[in-house]
Each structure stands twice: as C-alpha cells, then as structure tokens.
C-alpha cells in the first residue's frame, strides 16, 4: 500500500497491515509445520543436520561465551551496588542466576543467534532463490523445504537450548567474577545462593523459552529467504531486504513471545 493512500485512509491502512501480518504469520506457521514434519521423512538427513548444528551451534559458542560472560559480569556489578544499599549483598547469587536462567539467557542467546545464524540463513536461502537453485531442486524432484529448511529446523531445536545453557553457566561465572573476585563477596555464599534459589522449574522454563525462540527464529529467517522472489525488489536488493526483515522481525517476535511466555510460566 502506498504511503499517500495510507495517510488518506488510516483505518483502511491499519486493517490492511493487520490482515497482511496475520496472513504472513499463518503462512510462516504452515511453512514451519511442513519443514518440521519433513525432518522425519526417510531417509533421514543426518549429515545435513550435523552440518547445520555445527554452523548454528558450534560456531556460535565463542560469541555466546563472550556475551554470556559480560552479561553476568554487568549483572553482578549492578546487582551488588543495588543490594549493598539494603545490606543484602548475600542474595547476589540468586539475583544473577535467576535473571539469567529465566530471562536473559534464552532472550540474549536467541538474539545473538539471529545476528550470527539467522541473517546467514535468510541470505543463503535468498541467494539460492534468486540464482534459480531452488527451482533447480524442484526440477530434480527434490523438495526444497525438506532439503534446505528441515535440517535447519532440527539443528536450531537442538542448538538453542544447549547454547542457552552455556550462556547461563558462563553468565553465573561472570557474576561470580565481579561479585566475589572484584568486589569481595564471599564465593561460598554466592554459589550457595545460586544452588538454593534456582529450582528445576526455572531451568525448564528457560528451556521452553529457548525452544519457542528456536522455532520463531528458524521459521522466520528461512521463510524470508525462501520467498525472496515475491518481494517488490529483485536480485541483491531483494536478498538484503529479506535479511533485514528476517533479523528485525525475529528479534521483535522473540521479545513479544518472551513476554507472553513469562506471563504463562510465572
């Protein structure tokens, strides 16, 4: 819809964009469902799944450790100066561990993977679309969703929870670094608090979130790349648009989903 038309009739425009958004979400959901079911089609594509786990998971380890470590450190620092006012620095371990496991771990891991892997997925599949490689798959009677999307879905579902766990562990160690090593909090107290305050339900909640985020990220990023040719812009510009909207849309939806999930899980 053109901007002029939208300004003339804002109500019509609002309705138009809402319907388009809902339709897109429906298409993405069906796209994901097909890709997910095809994971189990025979013969299993184990090699391709392993390659994608290496790309999405293994290659993200460094960046996850880095962001996890600094997030934990900053949480330790901020938490300490807040708690010291109330004389309750002893609960720093609980504060850092719970905020990481319940909230920051899954969300920040998802956002880091979107930046590293999601954008690459959209661009890679987008380029395959504009250079007719996806058409070539169809002419060879190879289902492009099974060939390209299913291994990525399987790999994301496996990698996201593991990366989240790693983020949490490194983050807790980061909090220990600032809280105990730099600011002198008793290390025993820090880890005892971590141990006593974190319940299994918090860990499960964090994993549920990371699984939901995996579904959101992989389906949006693959979908945007897969349908690059339906955009108004063609060629390289189309791919750049797909990559941008894949990153923006999946970040926004991860945050919205996070809120919704937190409401249910608390």
């Amino acid at each position: 819809m053109q901007l002029r038309t939208a300004l003339k009739n804002p109500t019509v425009a609002l309705g138009h964009y809402t319907i388009t958004f809902i339709q897109d979400m429906g298409r993405i959901a069906l796209f994901f469902l097909k890709g997910f079911l095809l994971i189990f089609s025979i013969p299993l594509q184990i090699n391709k799944v392993l390659q994608q786990i290496y790309f999405i998971g293994m290659k993200s380890i460094f960046v996850i450790c880095l962001t996890g470590g600094f997030t934990g450190m900053v949480l330790g620092l901020q938490g300490y100066y807040l708690l010291v006012k109330y004389g309750s620095t002893g609960v720093l371990g609980s504060a850092v561990a719970l905020s990481l496991i319940r909230e920051m771990g899954p969300v920040l891991t998802a956002i880091m993977v979107i930046a590293r892997g999601g954008s690459a997925m959209a661009a890679e599949i987008g380029i395959m679309r504009i250079s007719e490689q996806i058409d070539a798959l169809e002419t060879m009677d190879i289902d492009p969703i099974r060939f390209l999307v299913s291994p990525r879905i399987a790999a994301a579902l496996i990698s996201f929870p593991l990366l989240t766990a790693l983020f949490d562990v490194v983050g807790i160690l980061g909090g220990y670094l600032t809280g105990s090593v730099l600011l002198g909090l008793n290390p025993g107290l820090y880890f005892t608090r971590v141990e006593t305050s974190v319940a299994m339900v918090d860990v499960t909640g964090g994993f549920v979130k990371s699984l939901v985020f995996a579904v959101i990220v992989v389906s949006i990023c693959c979908y945007q790349g897969f349908y690059t040719h339906t955009r108004a812009e063609f060629g390289a510009k189309g791919v750049s648009q797909s990559t941008t909207s894949a990153v923006v849309l999946s970040c926004v939806l991860v945050l919205i989903a996070d809120y919704a999930l937190t409401t249910f899980l608390l």
Partner: peptide, 27 residues
Amino acid sequence: FSYVFQDTALFDFLNVAENVALPLVEN
C-alpha cells in the same frame, strides 16, 4: 524431466562431483 538452466543454477555450496551426483543421491 530434466532442465538445463540459462544461468546454470549450480549449487554454489557443493563441488562439481556433488552437484552432478545430487539428483542421483537424493532420489
């Protein structure tokens, strides 16, 4: 059917042997 594309449409992430073998391996 088989189709030879104008711009070849070879899979750029596969080498020549894997490209040629793909229709046999997948089907």
